[in-house]
Nucleic acid binder design. Structure first.
Lengths: 153, 153
DNA sequence: ATGCGTTAGTTGTAATCGCAACAAATAATC
DNA sequence: GATTATTTGTTGCGATTACAACTAACGCAT
């Protein structure tokens, strides 16, 4: 039935294309919300959200859970510290690692933005268990993507 | 059962987070393939793929189907023309619109990259109808994202 | 404990992105 | 059919990204 020409990509049936389009829409929306509510850029927001989600995470942890370059995380951490939204504490066991936490101000900023994002993105978009299903599939693909990335070099 | 604190985002259950992570992985992989196989960057590849997918598309068409900024599309088009991978022809009815097509060289480059991407990404990642399901859900969300984006200003 | 490889985080710098401001062509309104 | 508003595409320029090279701290050998 399906010709399946291996040297052609039919965009409308190509999940990576749709995934990228969706993520671009999400990022743009997030950026506008985060900028308006807290004056942050996306990198700074990602770090703040990762730290608020699980206090004590290090820059390397953040780099791992979001596929951000470590230099971007580093600069985002610096600016968040400068603006007093998070603080860093060197670990007892390993002085290189900087344990990150939100400050009260950072926590407040986080909650304001999180509420707004939950409000605009989390509701009415999917029905029933679709959200769970979506996350399950995305995780499945992501883990395979990570393995091919590490293979290739 | 679920507390559902509206001012907190539990990353692991937040589909926008997972969507962005997946798309980043896809983009990085695509970038490395496209760069290695054809010496293009992602923007140039996106434009080439959009044009190969449906010849005759204009820059505005490309801007619409990928949420790329029109300036990025414009520059990608210029460089693709400079390197002889696509060509532009002003439309009869509207001289502003530039109908885009691949050249034989561009078509060849496209097919090489497409084959490689199909090879590395399209297989063994999902089972049965999961891919169709995934695309259906993503499209559903994307269309709602587009509508909230246009609302907000 | 000295040396060697690895890991955490930083900084330099070039490429890329994206907003705003623009010119040219078309559409709409009168 | 002249004027105004929209749309298509380009360019200027500051902000962001990402690759490389680097320093500092750790792990692990011998």
């Amino acid at each position: 039935m399906e010709p399946k020409d291996p040297s052609h990509i039919e965009l409308d049936n190509f999940w990576p294309y749709h995934a990228v389009v969706l993520a671009d829409l999400v990022s743009r929306h997030t950026h506008s919300v985060v900028k308006a509510e807290a004056g942050l850029n996306i990198s700074q927001w990602r770090v703040l959200a990762a730290v608020a989600d699980q206090p004590g995470r290090t820059a390397a942890d953040v780099t791992n859970i979001t596929p951000m370059d470590k230099t971007i995380v580093s600069r985002a951490v610096s600016s968040l510290i400068d603006s007093g939204l998070i603080k860093k504490t060197p670990t007892e066991t390993d002085k290189r690692r900087l344990s990150l936490e939100t400050t009260p101000i950072g926590q407040k900023a986080y909650e304001t933005v999180a509420a707004r994002l939950n409000d605009t993105m989390d509701t009415n978009f999917l029905e029933g268990d679709e959200g769970i299903e979506l996350i399950r599939m995305i995780k499945k693909i992501s883990s395979k993507m990570r393995s091919i990335s590490s293979h290739s070099e």
